[in-house]
Design a protein around this nucleic acid. Structure first.
Lengths: 344, 344
DNA sequence: GTGAAAGCGCTAACAC
DNA sequence: GTGTTAGCGCTTTCAC
């Protein structure tokens, strides 16, 4: 079905145009001065032969590939794949391609292997968007020895590392404070899996805000989920059973909040009058939940874009042999108030 | 911060081990016979120096990269990113990496450019997961001249091409038939954007099923959306206004169905008694909508995996100079019956 | 079993 | 302005 067309190389073009390969290369890279006549002749041949330079060969000699490695954890979640979208857009804009690798678990050797496979393909830099889990952390110690810069996402900013994260703590505070302002007396929380840094932060933000407001917080008032709607349903059930006086709940992501709204409906619990609900993430669908969900919105486009920008800055600095300063950025979320919490 | 460590190459290893580069290569590829003594010596040096072969250099000489190009349309939609997840898993399993490219629009030259950028990096094959839009179609005519195999997704199977798609027509029939069986007399439809092949198929499946059942179908009975919840909200509003007798609706994806459920709640329309709702996609969240959504479930893991398998088969056949037979696969969806339509 | 030479496709460095 | 030479890091002959 397909013919085995031999690849057209600089040599072919050079031969056909009656110039050296070097001249062809110069034309292709729009570099240095070339007589108009030669340029046109070469360009004509390029066009005619359909010549496309091999980025691969160029990468080999230039020792850079214009390719970024992206390691992501579970595209099955909506959050990470929206971030990937932001990464892809900015990478495109800056002229980089993405070599993608998915990580599903944290066998330590798997991590090394992933990094190696990216380095073997000469990526110019790496974006590491994997929730900070214990072993994972330990691994990050070895980063200094990497031959390319790396930007971490969804991790705790550490001096010396470049980290781009959403300010989950701040977001959790905003959510909880909002519930307090709406007049909730008994505010519960459904957290994400606590081996995720972001889940721990959201829990902490909730707890601290309540304490600061002079409320007492007990272990009875919160329940752990795993980001999925299924886990949210389970969690709200347990929580309602053992903390029936709860009249407001901060849920660590929108998908779990969806289940909370559904369960409330099912039991005839009025939202927001009897139970006010605030989510986290600001997925587009949350505006169409019933009732429309109040949520802490993060802009994944911004998040991913920032990571790429940081990385490319580091790559450029590295090339020009400047000192690479690792910058951490904490992106601020915003509160979107909708029906699920508006009591005024 | 980072030291400019010179890359360790076969030469370094060969020198240190007192063998030829050839021998090192043979050890690395666990190929042909090598004396145990030599092998161990080389392996020790490899370990000690931390040598990792450059896939790039190998790709150049072997003319293959063990990398698959994936072109996807808008990761902002849940569907495509779930498919990407399936692709990533299977690719990983088969030892391939993914070079990803996102397409946002259909400027024809953009399409060529994307393909070229993948080919320049020597991808062994391409997965094209972009909804079939007019220009796009026209472009597919040039496929035969590609030097690598390509698998299309979410497109109409065409003889001579390898296409992996969900059977949307069948799914739409199942959905509509189900509504009929549940006793709905007036069945409406909210479609996806009609420049998507899948949207057209779902509309057609709905229409044909109604006709086959002896129902009459008019333009009043359906409305076009764009997959987003926002468009779903708009569509159901219009539809309810001009087709108030509607007592069942087949919605072309779950996100739009979410808005339909919400709007029904808001207006006090009983679901499913007064209005039965069926969605499409089977996203995990749909089980936690209120009421739980009946939907046509497609397995993106299966879909993505199948595409990779097809592609890798074609790649292997190409290498062994066998005739490459382009196979098309139509994956069958399943009906998941939940509260939003169950009237028994 | 192992080594020497050649070359994948391209560009950096230097001639002229 | 343009050509020559060399070499990126690896593997494929084909010797020995």
């Amino acid at each position: 079905m397909r013919e085995h067309k031999k690849r057209i190389t600089v040599k072919d073009v050079a031969l056909a145009a009656g110039v050296s390969t070097q001249t062809v290369s110069r034309v292709m890279n729009k570099f240095s001065y070339i007589s108009d006549e030669t340029r046109q002749r070469v360009e004509a041949v390029v066009e005619q032969l359909g010549y496309r330079p091999s980025t691969l060969a160029r990468s080999l000699i230039q020792q850079r590939s214009y390719t970024l490695g992206v390691v992501t954890f579970g595209l099955k979640y909506i959050g990470p794949s929206r971030t990937l979208n932001g990464i892809a857009d900015k990478a495109d804009e800056l002229g980089y391609m993405l070599l993608m690798k998915k990580l599903d678990n944290f066998e330590a050797n798997g991590i090394d292997e992933v990094i190696e496979s990216l380095l073997a393909r000469q990526v110019d830099g790496i974006i590491w968007d994997v929730p900070e889990v214990d072993e994972n952390c330990a691994w990050a110690q070895g980063i200094e020895s990497l031959p390319v810069p790396i930007v971490f996402m969804s991790m705790e900013p550490k001096p010396g590392y470049s980290v781009v994260s959403m300010d989950s703590y701040q977001g959790a505070q905003m959510a909880t404070q909002h519930l307090i302002v709406q007049g909730c007396r008994q505010i519960g929380h459904i957290s994400g899996p606590l081996d995720w840094w972001e889940a721990r932060l959201r829990l902490q933000g909730w707890r601290d805000t309540l304490k600061k407001a002079g409320r007492q917080v007990s272990e009875q008032q919160w329940e752990q989920g795993n980001w999925s709607s299924a886990s949210g349903a389970l969690a709200i059930e347990k929580l309602l059973a053992r903390y029936p006086e709860m009249d407001g709940v901060f849920v660590a992501n929108d998908q779990m909040a969806l289940s909370v709204l559904g369960e409330a409906c099912r039991r005839g619990i009025q939202v927001p009058e009897r139970l006010a609900v605030v989510g986290f993430d600001g997925i587009p669908e949350s505006a169409y939940f019933y009732p429309a969900l109040t949520t802490i919105s993060q802009d994944p486009q911004l998040l991913g874009g920032q990571a790429v920008e940081n990385l490319v800055d580091m790559i450029r600095a590295g090339q020009e042999n400047e000192t690479v300063v690792a910058q951490s950025v904490l992106i601020q979320p915003t509160l979107i108030i909708r029906e699920s919490s508006r009591r005024s």
